[in-house]
Lab assay of single mutants.
Amino acid sequence: TSSHKLRLYERDDYRGLMSELTDDCACVPELFRLPEIYSLHVLEGCWVLYEMPNYRGRQYLLRPGDYRRYHDWGGADAKVGSLRRVTDL
């Protein structure tokens, strides 16, 4: 099985509160109590970021690497509604 891990930060450049995720999350704002995510670091696996909860809205593919600001993943703003692991490519 492949492993997945990413870290979410409330501010750009990996500042502020950090939360780690290793499984799908249908509602990021509810789980982490963060209305917006300004940076993230994908440590393992690929993920799909959705701008709205319950895997809706615009989708962004996140490969392992650094995303210091939301425009690094192509986002128009810092809204992160849900995240899902990519298990098949």
Rank of each mutant, 00 (worst) to 15 (best):
T1F: 15
S3K: 12
H4C: 03
L6M: 08
L8D: 02
E10T: 07
R11C: 09
R11L: 14
D12E: 13
D12M: 12
D13F: 13
D13S: 11
R15Y: 07
R15T: 12
G16K: 04
M18W: 12
M18C: 14
M18K: 09
S19A: 13
E20H: 01
E20Q: 06
L21W: 03
L21P: 02
T22Q: 14
T22F: 05
T22P: 01
T22S: 09
D24L: 03
C25P: 00
A26V: 10
C27K: 12
V28L: 10
P29R: 10
E30K: 12
L31T: 14
L31G: 06
F32P: 12
F32K: 11
L34M: 15
L34A: 15
L34P: 08
L34W: 09
E36D: 15
E36S: 14
E36L: 08
I37A: 12
S39K: 05
L40G: 04
H41T: 06
H41L: 04
H41G: 03
L43T: 04
G45T: 01
C46R: 07
W47S: 01
W47L: 00
W47E: 07
V48R: 10
L49A: 06
L49G: 04
Y50Q: 00
Y50A: 01
E51V: 05
E51L: 01
P53G: 02
Y55H: 02
R56F: 15
L62S: 03
G65A: 02
D66H: 15
Y67I: 03
Y67S: 00
Y67V: 07
R68W: 07
Y70G: 05
W73N: 12
W73D: 06
G74C: 03
D77K: 13
D77F: 03
A78E: 05
A78T: 06
K79L: 11
K79D: 03
K79T: 10
K79P: 03
V80Y: 02
G81Q: 04
G81S: 02
G81R: 03
S82W: 01
L83N: 04
L83Y: 04
R84Q: 10
R84T: 06
V86L: 10
D88V: 03
L89M: 14
